Amino acid sequence: MSLQNRPLSPHLQVYRPQLTSVLSILHRATGVALGLGTLLLVYWLAAAAAGPEAFAGAQSFVGSPVGLILLFGWSVALFYHLCNGVRHLAWDVGLGFELPSVYRSGWTVVIATAALTVLTWGLALVLP
């Protein structure tokens, strides 16, 4: 067998992503998203400090459909990273390494992320 015919390891066409690998990749991605999303928060705060005109411009962007989508994505990333961070803290003290526990805590992170996001945005829409 020549070296050119060898498959990649793991071969991406036959590899089925597992919950653990997807959650690990998402944890890293949400860390990056939080860093980038924080730039929007800094822009908003700087505009608030710069005066009413600058703040009105920032508010109009943040309140636009694009701004709301960015805020929604940032909140999902925040809640996911928070919940998965708590999961990692449990692992740091040696809890939850059994395979059933790993999958149970993984699905708990996904469900908690969805619940916290829906609760936060639901309250934001209901409260003045």
Results as ranks from 00 to 15, higher is better:
M1A: 09
L3N: 13
R6K: 14
R6W: 09
R6S: 12
L8E: 11
L8S: 12
S9E: 09
P10Y: 05
V14W: 14
V14A: 14
R16C: 14
P17Q: 03
Q18T: 13
Q18H: 15
L19V: 04
L19H: 08
T20C: 03
L23R: 04
S24C: 11
L26H: 00
H27N: 14
R28V: 11
R28K: 11
A29F: 15
A29D: 14
T30A: 03
T30F: 04
L34F: 07
L34E: 02
L34V: 07
L36S: 00
L40N: 03
L40M: 13
L41D: 08
V42A: 06
V42C: 01
V42G: 02
V42R: 07
Y43C: 01
L45E: 08
A46W: 09
A47R: 03
A48F: 15
A48H: 13
A49I: 08
A49C: 12
A49M: 07
G51R: 07
G51A: 08
G51V: 11
G51M: 09
P52T: 12
P52S: 10
P52N: 14
A54L: 01
A54F: 00
A54E: 05
G57Y: 02
A58D: 03
Q59W: 04
S60C: 05
F61Q: 02
V62E: 02
G63T: 07
S64H: 06
P65E: 05
V66P: 00
I69V: 15
L70V: 11
L70N: 04
L70T: 01
L71M: 12
L71T: 00
F72M: 10
G73V: 04
A77Y: 01
Y80L: 10
H81N: 11
L82R: 02
L82Q: 05
C83T: 04
C83F: 10
C83R: 04
C83M: 10
G85S: 08
V86N: 08
H88W: 15
H88E: 09
L89T: 01
L89A: 09
L89W: 07
W91L: 13
W91M: 15
V93M: 08
G94C: 03
G94K: 07
G96R: 00
G96C: 00
F97I: 07
L99Y: 13
L99P: 15
P100G: 03
S101N: 06
S101M: 06
V102C: 01
V102S: 03
V102T: 07
R104V: 07
G106R: 01
W107N: 09
T108N: 04
V110Q: 01
I111M: 05
I111A: 15
A114Q: 02
L116W: 04
L119I: 12
T120G: 03
W121M: 11
G122K: 07
G122H: 05
L123P: 02
L123E: 15
A124P: 04
A124C: 13
L125G: 15
V126Q: 08
